[in-house]
Amino acid sequence: MGRNGEGQKGLQPADFLICFLLFSYAIICCMKVRDWAGLEHFNPQTVWKWCREGTMPDRVTVERSPSGAYMIYDPKYETASRVPVDSGSLRTVCYARVSCADQKADLQRQADRLKAFAIGMGVEHPEVVMETGSGMNDKRRKLNRLLADPTVGTIIVEHRDRLARMNAGLVESALKAQGRRVIVVDDTELDDDLVRDMTEALTSFCARLYGRRAAKHKAQAALKAAHDA
């Protein structure tokens, strides 16, 4: 050892090991927004918005790096490998629905909000089911599959009319009798979707009376008359 190194100890193997473990811990537990969004199946733009507004799930900590980037610490990815899985527990599923295919962006945002709500409840791995279809339609395949699945203990919907436009209370009562439940995040209804569903119901009714060609025009005329009344 040279003169400048007299009285000084070099890094020992144990020191390298500690540095490696600390570095690995930081890599595993802190991640970029895009990486965390990918693991949680969120839209990265939604997560960036939550970071800016301070509305991330309670269990998640958000820090700013020296460069200004958001870094996310999520304890779930620190301990997930050590948490035993109870295969007999009932599943929690978030159900998101919109009426029309042109609402795809709204459907994704709705799903993101539901998943964030479920995580805030303490659900570690909430499932998300997204479906496009009228709230008046009782033959929605994905919803019917959830209702018929006894392993689904909790269904989370943003609004009650996402579950069904009519008789949603009967669905809730039937599930409750089986020891299952529906959680409604917000009890208000969406007026835009209500108009869409009513238009669809009237169009179907008019098609039976006047034929398919005149059905849409007749339904719009009926809605206008109701609005002007």
Score class of each variant (00 low, 15 high):
191 D>T: 11
222 A>N: 02
60 V>N: 03
182 V>F: 00
94 C>Q: 02
111 A>W: 07
31 M>Q: 15
144 N>Q: 15
89 S>F: 08
26 A>G: 09
124 E>R: 14
96 A>C: 07
114 L>H: 01
69 A>C: 03
32 K>E: 13
188 T>M: 04
210 Y>N: 00
52 R>H: 14
175 L>W: 03
168 A>I: 06
81 S>P: 00
206 C>M: 13
220 Q>H: 05
86 D>S: 05
157 V>L: 00
207 A>D: 00
100 C>F: 14
188 T>L: 11
192 D>N: 08
116 A>V: 12
187 D>Q: 06
159 H>V: 02
220 Q>A: 03
86 D>E: 09
199 T>E: 11
95 Y>M: 12
158 E>K: 08
36 W>E: 03
122 G>E: 10
126 P>M: 13
209 L>T: 02
59 R>M: 10
95 Y>G: 08
25 Y>A: 11
14 A>G: 12
199 T>D: 07
185 V>Q: 09
131 E>N: 08
179 G>I: 08
18 I>V: 15
155 I>W: 07
227 H>E: 12
93 V>Y: 09
14 A>W: 09
85 V>L: 03
141 R>K: 15
9 K>W: 11
39 L>H: 14
67 S>T: 13
124 E>F: 01
59 R>D: 06
92 T>F: 10
132 T>F: 11
156 I>S: 13
143 L>V: 13
216 K>T: 02
51 C>R: 09
96 A>M: 04
13 P>G: 06
24 S>E: 09
